[in-house]
Design a binder for these strands. Sequence first.
DNA 1: ATCGGCTCGCGCAA
DNA 2: TGCGCGAAGCCGAT
Length: 428
Amino acid sequence: MDRATACNSRHVNGRGNYVLYWMTCYRRRYFNFALERAVFWATELRKPLLILEALACDYPWASERLHTSVMEGMHDNLGTFEHSPAAYYPYVEPSPGAGRAVFSSLAKRACLVVTDDFPAFVIPRWIETVATHADVLVEKVDSNGLYPMRATDRIFLTARSFRTYLKKSTPSFPVPDPLEGIDLPHMRKPNRLSRKLPPIPPCVPRDVRPVPRLKGGVNAARKNLRKFIRSDMKSSGLSPYLHFGHISSHEIYGEVTKARRRDSEHFLDELITWRELGFNMCALERDYDKYAALPGWARKTLASHARDKRPVIYTPDQLENADTHDAVWNASQDELITTGRIRNRLRMLWGKKILEWSATPQEALDVMIHLNNKYALDGRDPNSYSGIFWVLGRYDRPWGPERPIFGLVRYMSSASTAKKLKAESRNA
DNA sequence: ATCGGCTCGCGCAA
DNA sequence: TGCGCGAAGCCGAT
């Protein structure tokens, strides 16, 4: 299986009480290779399966908004795992650090730990810490996309070459429901765990409000998928669900293909080529979120314009508060703050202007990462980093004429973006 | 409304 | 070695 990776060289403890699935990113029952793997181990060892869906409270950019989405997903999962052969427990960390003790006491009694292999944000560090301290085997499993992200060690620099590579590879699919028809021993409720969801802990910052119109969880995800396929196939709105793992790209691919719509090609390219291109970068490039990982031509051309006079410079605070002279840009930043998303076309303009209005490209990068991770429901994801770095030249090519600040990095203007948006809404 | 040129990396044909 | 082509553009010429 090219989706499972051992994270330490410890052994499976056949005398453990259960197999522990530490669910951190694929927060779902269905189409989940990691859960499938955990079920395999539990069956093999004839042990109960304990699923711990964990939510920390002190990771960077933790907010009421993100907690709400994840906990809505937990609420759905309480339903989906009810009457299943596995023991499912949501765990919402009540205060900073509390989760460590709970996790390590659970891991002590486990035969092994299976967890989600996610290549970005804090997850790789968490897995490393746990793998170092655990007394048993820790396995991470890749259920991110149709193609295993570690099947190659080549970092792809253009979508075109990645597309050609994918055409030559074979996608692999998890079973729709890994718990169907499975018989496992039952287990007693572990201490300190409960099937009830607590309120959002007081330590979670309240400054980024939830988005009631965009409910998290597998039920809302599937509802949105059905609606998307029934309608125009233009903007799916599925990226927050993909990010939290409330739905898998395998299921989306399956449903879209089943519908046999002729206009689905663009969407599938976005879902597969572009989405998995981002996972390829994060999985294989250690510095995926650092300025230094930009392509050489982009760094070179931006450097040669580093000392260009900026007609306007806004501070990170002014940008965050949507306090610029540009109405189109302010609207996109407002949209990000209130809805947790920016529409596709505006998203790129949003970044290009941050580059134009920051003292240096490095500062622009910092601001983009901060604002996107803080407010976007689908932030902190390989795809976010693709979008942000695209602004600075990643996956793009040079475009003349050479301009101030941008050099040969593609430029965008608010006026023509606004014009295109208007034309699009007229056609709709 | 549509077209080419701006410029680089990659894959493929030769 | 050369050629065509590429997520989201812009600008000026027709």
